[in-house]
Simulated assay, not measured.
Amino acid sequence: MSGEVIVVGGGVIGLTTAIVLAESGHRVTVWRAEPARGTTSATAGALWWPYRIDPEIRVGAWALTSLRVYEELAHKSEETGVRLVEGLHAGTWLDGLGPWAAQVAGLRACPQGLRARLPLIDMPVHLRWLERRLAAAGGTVETREAERLPDAPVVVNCTGLGARDLVPDPEVRPVRGQLVVVENPGIRDWYTSVEHGGPETTYFFPQPYGLLLGGTAEEDDWNLAPDPVTAERIIARCALVRPEIAGARVVAHRVGLRPARDSGVRVERQHTPDGGVLVHNYGHGGAGVTVAWGCAEEAAALATSSPAPRSSG
């Protein structure tokens, strides 16, 4: 066994990072303020796709690494919550995507946009599976509020929106997403139509627990309370694509705050004044699930490479 690592943050980014570290032989403890079901990750629509995330030059590699993991996990979908599902990105075209798109098998153009069979993840099930996998690797989870980043030899900061105050990093800010869960009227394919500059999006994802409808992308909005008018607009937009959605019974409302960062995802290593190592892994915007495993591997490598010598003064 190697040295001890504290991972602060228990959403999908923190758990995947902790798993990579623990399965490499490190003693890992995850600090989280609340159970995984209370994190932003639990509310995610969780379709694999690089959405509202920068820097583009790094995102592609992280996303493809994660795609390969999810493709394997889909072989045990009931256990992992990962399924490969067919769908349409309406109004999205290959020439608007980065080089990563050429490595997505089955991504193909059609008159409406791009069709693909992509990982779609039931996040409550997936988060529980991640916790079990971490425990099987010897990792532990502690529920504790971090008022500051801990003083420890190796710390990985996966606090998402919390990094705004903990680091502190004023570049971190919320992008509010509201969703509606309805009884699925028989829809099997997912659908997205995104206006990248506007606060409204249209998408629906068939999940085992119902049809997840979205959504919004409201920058700098911290409000976690569902807005009834917004919910009605979401349902109406989705029903324009599939009219049967209009009559579906509403099961639940969800709101999540995407942890955006002005200069993009931060995966970076620092040395603390006492000679310890602090690795940051936050700012994943609307694509934390999409890049989780790629970022986890990079952050774990940064955390466990040889630290700088301690000061003798």
Rank of each mutant, 00 (worst) to 15 (best):
V69R: 11
L257G: 10
R144N: 03
E86R: 13
W49C: 00
H196R: 13
G285P: 07
H271W: 01
P259G: 06
Q178V: 04
F205K: 01
E56Y: 06
L130Y: 00
V85G: 03
V265T: 14
R27A: 13
T40A: 15
I53Q: 00
R258N: 02
E232R: 15
K76C: 03
P226C: 05
T40L: 07
Y51K: 07
E78Q: 05
V167L: 15
L278R: 13
R237Q: 09
S311Y: 08
R108W: 06
W100P: 02
V28Y: 06
L161N: 06
V267I: 15
I13Y: 05
G264Y: 02
R52Y: 07
V104M: 04
T43N: 12
E218M: 15
G214F: 05
T80G: 10
P55H: 09
L130C: 08
Y191W: 15
S2L: 14
L130M: 10
L107Y: 07
N223Y: 08
P111E: 13
R133I: 01
W100G: 01
I6N: 05
A248T: 01
L67E: 03
V277E: 00
G288R: 01
D189K: 15
A116E: 01
L15P: 02
L179D: 01
I234P: 12
E171R: 10
N223F: 05
T290H: 06
C238L: 12
A44L: 05
G313W: 14
M1Q: 13
P124K: 02
A225P: 07
E297S: 10
C158G: 03
G96T: 03
L114S: 04
L118S: 04
C110F: 03
R68G: 09
G11I: 03
T290D: 07
T192K: 09
R144C: 03
P150H: 09
R233N: 08
D274N: 10
E171S: 14
V172W: 02
E4R: 14
G11N: 11
S24M: 09
A18Q: 10
S24I: 02
R237W: 09
T17R: 14
V8G: 00
A135V: 06
D274R: 12
P150V: 11
Q270K: 12
G38S: 15
R108G: 06
H271E: 11
V154H: 00
V265I: 15
R58H: 13
H196Y: 13
D151G: 06
A146L: 12
V277F: 01
L211M: 08
E142S: 10
Y70Q: 02
Y209T: 08
T143N: 03
M1V: 13
M123G: 02
W129A: 08
A135H: 07
H253D: 11
R27G: 14
T201I: 15
G10P: 13
D227V: 15
V175K: 00
L127A: 08
Q270W: 08
H196P: 07
I6P: 02
T65W: 00
P208D: 04
T290I: 09
G313K: 09
A36W: 08
V180C: 05
V28Q: 11
R249Y: 05
A252F: 04
R148L: 09
E147G: 15
L127W: 00
G215A: 11
Q178Y: 04
G60V: 00
E268A: 14
L97P: 02
V241P: 09
V154L: 05
W293P: 00
Y282M: 06
E142R: 15
I234L: 14
R254D: 06
G288Y: 00
V291L: 06
P208I: 02
D221V: 14
R269W: 08
P35D: 12
L21E: 12
